[in-house]
Design a protein around this nucleic acid. Structure first.
Length: 451
RNA sequence: UCCUCGCUAGCUCAAUGGCAGAGCGGGCGGCUGUUAACCGCUAGGUUCGAGGUUCAAGUCCUCGGCGAGGAGCCA
């Protein structure tokens, strides 16, 4: 660098260097020239900043090179930081007057991603480049904060991080489809769809634990809220009943939302997110029983005049909620809402029955507002050995595979509860985006494993 | 697995059964404050594939391919 005094600065820190000469290392996101002026919108990973080249300040050859810089060229810029309300960017309001510019690599001119909306197919085929766009950058920064805030809350509230295996010997819940792989001489192994059963073992050593890792579902689900590989958080707690579980969920979600609002406001604003919708999100969250939710849905069914919507709202006690039902319920609230006490028949075998009402169980889903639907699903687990054994036999699950799981109920069994949270669903809700596929860097869906 | 929709320039999309078009992006030129700048010029096409109907098919019919989002299932 010509100026040995200049410091390498990240775009987020520009406002702290007003009047100083700095070095920015990044990529040309957009370029527009106006005769003797060239505006470069440069991104460096931390943000987007406008850098301005004025013909009178630079030698002719360099100015000409800057004027022709292709989109996405990598550059090292030396210049003076100045405050200017006209300067676009994230965070914006400060720009760099270019004194020198080194081209690290001049990008090929055929960069395919224009700065505008793209079709889904094209965007996903070019995910490796789509990631550079401001919207995707903002979404994935928010995702990182969702994950950091999640761990932060759990770590500060007595939970221990325990990683559970991804290669597992058998179906945990029996019903859903698993990805299969060869495992040496041991036959088949399967990619985990949950760490819950292992966490139930872990709580007897550590009390409160969580796992947070990728999880795999080979279901042929094709909707805006499904991926075949997604990141799930699963806390599990000893000596905790269903009420205790709901308290943990609402405290943790509150922390996540408030932390995103505190640390990722520029990203949220750049996505056009309505911040007032998130500022509302504070514990306690409303709690309604499945029975009451069923009544609500039947009322809504009666009132609905559009025959198409009416058909979707059709509901009888005993069935699980579909996406239209969840949407209808959440539209009644401006916060996430707990629905607890689902019919035993539609839920997993390990859920504790409701005292005196064996047809319902101590399960709870947390439904996010604005139509986002289920973000967390959990339950109090069966703690009685004989009841659990009975359920395993009723469901015709391979008893041998659950030997260790049953033993947990023989040696100091306690009431315990846990839940799973879908990271991409929470992130999509924070961002106000339509589809979970944008809430992970390289989404895996039933039709896509590339790139 | 079922239902619905889509596939035209690098991208986003037009085109009553009658000459294949625009904007963006690319190239060339102009402009000292642009905000996905603007203005002028320019290059760019196996209309997803295979059959068929027709004087004539991007458009209509049949079959196939690929993708999407909704159902089911779930976080």
């Amino acid at each position: 660098m010509e100026n040995l005094m200049a410091e390498i600065v990240r775009v987020t820190e520009l406002s702290k260097h007003a009047g100083e000469e700095v070095i920015i290392q990044g990529w040309v996101y957009n370029r527009t020239d106006k005769g003797k002026l060239v505006f470069l919108l440069v991104r460096d990973g931390s943000g987007f900043a406008q850098c301005v080249a004025f013909k009178g300040d630079l030698d002719e050859k360099l100015f000409d090179q800057i004027m022709r810089l292709p989109q996405e060229s990598s550059v090292i810029i030396t210049g003076a930081v100045r405050e200017d309300k006209r300067a676009p960017g994230i965070p914006g309001g400060f720009e760099v007057g270019i004194k020198d510019l080194k081209v690290v690599q001049s990008a090929d001119a055929d960069y395919p991603m224009a700065l505008k909306d793209h079709g889904v197919d094209f965007a996903l085929d070019n995910r490796h480049l789509w990631l550079r766009m401001q919207s995707q950058w903002a979404i994935l920064r928010i995702r990182a904060t969702v994950m950091a805030a999640t761990r932060e809350w759990l770590d500060n509230n007595g939970f221990i991080a325990m990683d559970t295996p991804i290669l597992t010997p058998a179906a945990a819940e029996g019903t859903t489809t698993l990805f299969e792989t060869e495992y040496f001489d041991e036959g088949k192994a399967y990619l985990a769809q949950t760490g819950q059963l292992y966490n139930e073992a872990n709580i007897f050593s550590f009390g409160k634990v969580y796992c947070f890792g990728p999880t795999f579902r080979a279901e042929k689900s094709k909707t805006r809220r499904h991926l075949t590989e997604f990141w799930m958080l699963e806390p599990e707690m000893a000596f905790t009943d269903l009420d205790g579980l709901m308290e943990v969920e609402e405290q943790m979600i509150t922390h996540i939302v408030q932390r995103v609002l505190r640390d990722r406001k520029p990203e949220l604003v750049s996505l056009g997110r309505d911040l007032t919708k998130l500022e509302n999100i504070k514990a306690p969250f409303p709690r309604i029983s499945y029975d009451d939710a069923a009544k609500m849905l039947q009322e809504m069914y009666k009132k609905e005049s559009d025959p198409e919507k009416k058909e979707l709202l059709k509901f009888d006690w005993g069935i699980d909620f579909g996406a239209p039902h969840e949407t209808a319920i959440t539209q009644q609230f401006d916060k996430p809402v707990f629905v607890y006490g689902y019919p035993t028949a539609v839920k997993a075998f390990y859920m504790e029955p409701w005292p005196g009402r064996p047809e319902v169980c101590k399960s709870v889903d947390l439904l996010a507002p604005e139509g986002y639907g289920e973000i967390c699903g959990g339950s109090e687990r069966i703690s009685d050995h004989d009841l659990l054994l009975k359920r395993i036999r009723e469901q015709k699950l391979p008893e041998e595979a659950f030997k260790w799981y049953l033993e947990l109920r023989k040696y100091g069994s306690v009431p315990h509860s846990g839940f799973g949270m879908g990271t991409e669903r929470v992130t999509a809700w924070m961002c106000g985006i339509e589809h979970v596929r944008e809430a992970i860097a390289f989404p895996r869906t039933i039709k896509r494993v590339y790139p």
